Computed example of a mutant assay.
Amino acid sequence: MNNSAKLRIAIQKSGRLSEDSLQMIKECGISFKNGIGALKAEATNFPMEFLLLRDDDIPGYVADGVADIGIVGENVLAEKQRDVVVAHKLGFSKCRLSIAIPKSEPYEGVHQLDGKRIATSYPKILETFLRNNNVQAEIHEISGSVEIAPGIGLADAICDIVSSGSTLFTNGLKEVQPIFQSEAVLISRPDMAGEQRALLDKLLFRIRSVQAARNNKYILLNAPESKIEVIKSLIPGMKSPSILPLAEPGWVSMHSVINENDFWEVIEKLQAEGAQGILVVPIEKMIL
C-alpha cells in the first residue's frame, strides 16, 4: 500500500454526535491532535485525516469526493438524499424524528394532521411520511428553534428530533407521532476502491471489534462439577466456556462471554444453579 494514501473522514465539528464519533475513533486505537477551533486534524498512528464540519454538510462532502467517508445521523442522510452508501451502522447517537402538538390538545391519530401547518427542519422526511399516510398538510421549513413555532402562531404542530422530550415539554408540546428512527452511521463514496477501500476495511474491522466489546461482558465463576453441563448451556461463549479445576475437589472455574442484553437474566439463572464468586469484567476489544 502506498504510504501516502490516507482515508479522509468527515465528522461533525461539535455536539453529541461529534463527541461520540471521536470517542469511538479513540477506542479503535487511533490517536489524533485536534486544536480548539481547528477544522482539520491528522491521525498520528493511522493514515487518516479528519475534516470537522457541520453535520448537514457531511453527506455532500462524501458524495462529492472531498471526504472518503463520514459519520452522520440517519436523519440527516435521509433528508439530504445524496449519492452515498451506508458502510456500517454505529449504534450510538440514537434519536427519533417525531411530530409534536400543544400539550392541551388531544391526539387521535395521524389523520388529525390533515390540513394542519407543520414546522420542521426535515421537510423531505416529513413529506414522505405524510404522503405514505394520505395526509395533506402544509409544511413550513425552518432551521433551528422549531419548537417555538406553535407558540408564535407559525404552525399547528412541529416535526423535530426528540431524544429525552424535555425540550418539547419546556415549550408546552407533547410528542404524538414518531415518524423516523435514527442512529449514527458510517457512510462512504459508492465508488470507493483500491487503497482507500483497503483502509476503510481496516477501520471497519476495528469498529466491529469495539462494538462487540461494548455489547458483551467477560464472566468468571465457580461452580460444582455436577452443574457444568447446565451452566455451559447458560454461558456458551463464542465457542464454549473455558473450564479449569479448582484446588477444592468437586469445583471448577468457568470463564465465558455473555451478551449485555442477557446479563441480568443469565446471572439470576447461574445463581439458581449454584454458581458462586461470579465476576463480571468489561471487555476492551473483542476480535470475532
Rank of each mutant, 00 (worst) to 15 (best):
Ser164Phe: 11
Asp191Met: 03
Ile11His: 03
Lys26Ala: 12
Ala67Leu: 04
Val281Ser: 15
Ile30Cys: 05
Ile99Gln: 03
Ile179Ala: 04
Val185Pro: 00
Ala198Gln: 14
Asn34Lys: 15
Pro150Leu: 02
Asn216Gln: 10
Leu279Phe: 00
Met286Asn: 10
Leu52Ser: 04
Leu154Trp: 14
Pro249Tyr: 06
Val66Arg: 14
Ile231Glu: 08
Ile11Lys: 02
Ile142Glu: 09
Ser182Gln: 00
Phe205Thr: 15
Val86Trp: 00
Ile139Tyr: 04
Val280Arg: 05
Arg16Gln: 11
Glu147Cys: 05
Gln271Met: 08
Ile207Met: 06
Met238Cys: 00
Asn222Trp: 04
Ser182Phe: 00
Val85Leu: 15
Val210Cys: 02
Asp56Tyr: 01
Val230Gly: 00
Ala157Phe: 07
Gln271His: 08
Ile71Arg: 04
Ala5Pro: 02
Tyr107Asn: 12
Val135Ser: 04
Ile287Asp: 07
Asp201Lys: 09
Val76Gly: 00
Glu273Gly: 01
Gly37Gln: 05
Ala38Val: 01
Ser209Ile: 01
Phe46Asn: 10
Ala43Glu: 01
Glu141His: 14
Glu138Leu: 10
Asp262Ile: 06
Gly165Arg: 08
Gly153Lys: 08
Ile207Cys: 03
Val62Ile: 12
Val110His: 07
Ala272Gln: 15
Leu220Trp: 00
Ile139Ala: 08
Val84Lys: 05
Ile118Pro: 02
Asp56Leu: 02
Arg96Asn: 09
Glu260Ser: 12
Glu49Pro: 00
Ile148Trp: 06
Ile187Lys: 09
Lys239Arg: 09
Gly91Phe: 02
Gly277Ser: 11
Glu42Met: 11
His111Cys: 07
Gln12Ser: 12
Phe169Ser: 13
Leu246Ser: 13
Ile9Glu: 06
Ile71Trp: 01
Gly73Phe: 00
Pro178Glu: 08
Leu204Cys: 06
Ser164Lys: 13
Glu260Phe: 07
Gly60Val: 04
Val86Ala: 00
Leu270Met: 11
Gly194Ser: 12
Glu105Thr: 12
Asp20Asn: 12
Lys80Phe: 06
Ala78His: 11
Arg197Phe: 10
Asn45Leu: 00
Val86Glu: 01
Ile36Glu: 14
Gln136Cys: 11
Glu273Lys: 10
Ile36Ala: 13
Asp114Asn: 15
Ala5Tyr: 02
Pro102Lys: 03
Gly60Tyr: 05
Ser164Arg: 13
Asn215Asp: 11
Pro241Asn: 07
Ala213Ser: 08
Gly151His: 04
Ala247Gln: 15
Val210Thr: 03
Gly73Cys: 01
Asp57His: 08
Ile58Gln: 07
Ile235Asn: 00
Asp191Gln: 11
Val281Gln: 15
Phe205Glu: 14
Ile36Lys: 14
Ile278Phe: 04
Leu246Pro: 06
Val135Leu: 03
Glu229Phe: 03
Gln271Val: 08
Pro102Met: 05
Glu229Asp: 11
Val257Tyr: 11
Gly60Lys: 10
Gly29Ser: 08
Gly115Pro: 05
Ser98Cys: 13
Asn222Lys: 11
Val230His: 04
Lys40Gly: 02
Glu105Gln: 15
Val210His: 02
Met254Arg: 03
Leu77Met: 13
Met254Leu: 12
Lys94Met: 05
Ile187Met: 09
Leu17Asn: 08
Ile243Arg: 01
Leu17Phe: 01
Leu53Ala: 12
Gly277Ile: 00
Glu273Leu: 07
Asn2Ala: 12
Ile243Lys: 04
Ser240Lys: 15
Val230Ser: 13
Ile187Ser: 09
Ala213Val: 04
Pro190Tyr: 05
